[in-house]
Design a protein around this nucleic acid. Structure first.
Lengths: 366, 366
DNA sequence: TCCACTTAAGCAACGCTGTTGCCAAAGTGC
DNA sequence: GCACTTTGGCAACAGCGTTGCTTAAGTGGA
């Protein structure tokens, strides 16, 4: 059951178990999964799984697709997710560009649009532009909601923006509610790094329970996935990785501090010393691995992509050195998969998270 | 519902809701709480709460205790937890000392024993000594289980010790199972810093959803409580705070690295410059606040206790300075409450956590 | 070809959960 | 003293997963 402070009743129980089954169906992908295997993995009885999958088939969310080889008795029937049963829209509002994607239940990209955007414009104009892109992608399909990713800071719970860097007029704007009213759909808002991390968490192959996505572009930030769920912190402020001090009394940073990783990394990049930048990044990654005991480090962002191998090797070297000293486990460092729509696709996953039961860690109210 | 990957059935539902109600009863303490208030807080219907509390009263876990003033109708009946309905034992196995405590359901200390201990002795002898202390405290009471806190590293999930610093013969010893078999009781194992953090999380007054407990004694470590639950990481390795690099190329640390907070802090303490030690600790705390967006920093450990005000002020100054730069929220820094048995009491809470539904964040299997 | 055996999955009855509708209990205040 | 408000239990109920059993659909040996 998902962590929460609220009581659960029978409908909640039913949703929980259905979401669990859907998550396994999604993870099984094209290979499918049998009822008995679902029963084994969920801990439910086979009969319960039969009932749940029957409901899902009635809804059109799941379907039977062939059968496995017999092992001496009746062969198992293979069940699969029907990805086209529902869709989600993801919007990435960047400083100068708006990317909108439509994904199906499996997270597969169905459609994408990219248009120029001026975040400096009136919020109402931006809302209108975003809504127009979302509607253009819908096309009569069953759309569960819209996920929006933006540069922070913002508050996920209330859906309100804070002092977006360089765009003070956004301060306090209730973007989520404004867009939800305009579109008549559920809207979810999160930071771009969080959306990217969520997208990575749900990519086939990245089944790590917890990892950090480090994004080095014009700035340096992180998205944290802990125990399979996005860690946002109480105010959606988590992931402030770039202004971690790693060199006391070091060079001044734009934030007013000294010796921040971001300043050190970007200065190294500016003078062309990518290996040094990678080592700085690695120090922060090693600190993070020790503090949180995560399974994996994923690197992304324009600056990383430009010299991917150097960054991956440099960060891995520092992390491994620390593991050898016994201060941290051996943690793989890999480049983050994902094309030009990675953030928008992650934003779409904000909508799909509750469907598949991978609820976010809930925070008790003060 | 608690986050998990397993299916839920009616008994699980019932336990979840009962635990939720018990948690609210515990939080209400001597003041008590009415049925309607419980209904409001849990989201359950008043009738469901009536049924649940009736079961708890039958069990002897809750009781009616007076009534509130009327607001124009029938006055509300106040319900309270019956702390003596069950107990938990907490063991703190330190390098040279074994502390055992008995606490009731409310977490109140009922009994305590402290004896010398040699962690260098045979594991079987230590198990025997620990079991004897636990049994001496039981005294015919209903004891739900035994929580054990030790210096790490160790694995909470399997209950197996790793290379305990300075005591290599413990490597791989299945302490949890050995003690469970010897005592015939459920046993839970965790790091001392985690137990301390858990104890703080459940102390009245510390209702922060997430905080970091920084422990500065002979070493420097941290216990992290995120979203009301202990964050252990996949291998119970989280909280390695002391060997975070904050001064690249700085003085050598015992771990083999350079510029670790622990080395810097302890060196400052050694030469009597407590204010400098506090500032170093503050840099790490500020890094952590930014990364995890927590609500509070709690400081403890012998070294901190010796100069509490200096440490609290010094750390708070650095954290506040960072908040002013906009890089992190304003986070209070406070001394950790708790007497000589704080760790053992936290260990006992390991047993009580599932009773009150504040389950730990579950990690998906690989 | 038949038949015993194995394995998968549905049917029906069941126990138990929280919910709903209603009513009794226990106050306040004109 | 009576109308009103508020609390909380009783009884009937819908719906969840579970249990016991039956049917479906294969394998493999005689």
């Amino acid at each position: 059951m998902n962590r929460s402070n609220t009581g659960a009743n029978l409908p909640a129980l039913r949703n929980h178990n259905a979401a669990l089954v859907l998550d396994l169906l999604r993870a099984a992908g094209e290979a499918g999964i049998s009822r008995l295997e679902l029963a084994e993995r969920t801990g439910l009885t086979p009969q319960a799984v039969s009932k749940i999958t029957a409901r899902l088939r009635d809804e059109g969310t799941a379907t039977e697709a062939g059968r496995r080889a017999s092992t001496g008795g009746k062969p198992r029937t293979v069940l699969k997710l029907v990805p086209s049963a529902a869709h989600a829209i993801g919007l990435h509002l960047d400083r100068d560009e708006l990317t909108a994607v439509l994904v199906d239940l499996a997270g597969t990209l169905v459609g994408a649009r990219t248009v120029p955007l001026d975040l400096g414009a009136e919020p109402s104009c931006v809302v209108e532009a975003a809504a127009a892109e979302a509607e253009a992608l819908t096309g009569g399909r069953r759309v569960l909601g819209v996920g929006v990713a933006m540069p922070g800071p913002l508050d996920h719970d209330s859906g309100v923006l804070h002092r977006v860097t360089g765009f003070p007029h956004w301060n306090g704007f209730p973007l989520r509610d404004a867009l939800a009213e305009r579109l008549g759909r559920k809207v979810f808002l999160d930071k771009d790094t969080n959306a990217a991390a969520l997208g990575l968490a749900l990519r086939a192959g990245t089944r790590a329970g917890s990892f950090a996505y480090l994004h080095l572009g014009t700035g340096l930030g992180a998205g944290l996935v802990l125990g399979g769920a996005l860690h946002r912190g109480a105010r959606t402020g988590a992931g402030e990785f770039g202004h971690q001090t790693i060199l006391l009394g070091g060079p001044a940073c734009g934030c007013g501090g000294r010796g921040c990783i971001e300043a050190l990394c970007l200065a190294s990049v500016a003078r062309g010393d990518i290996a040094a930048a990678a080592r700085f990044l690695g120090v922060g990654a090693a600190n993070l691995v020790g503090l949180l005991d995560i399974d994996e480090i994923l690197l992304g962002g324009r600056t990383v992509t430009a010299d991917q191998d150097t960054f991956v090797r440099g960060v891995a070297a520092v992390v491994e050195e620390r593991a050898r000293r016994g201060g941290a486990p051996e943690v793989p460092v890999r480049p983050a998969a994902g094309g030009p729509h990675a953030v928008a696709e992650g934003a779409a996953q904000l909508v799909l998270v509750p469907v598949f039961g991978r609820a976010n860690v809930a925070y008790p109210q003060a």
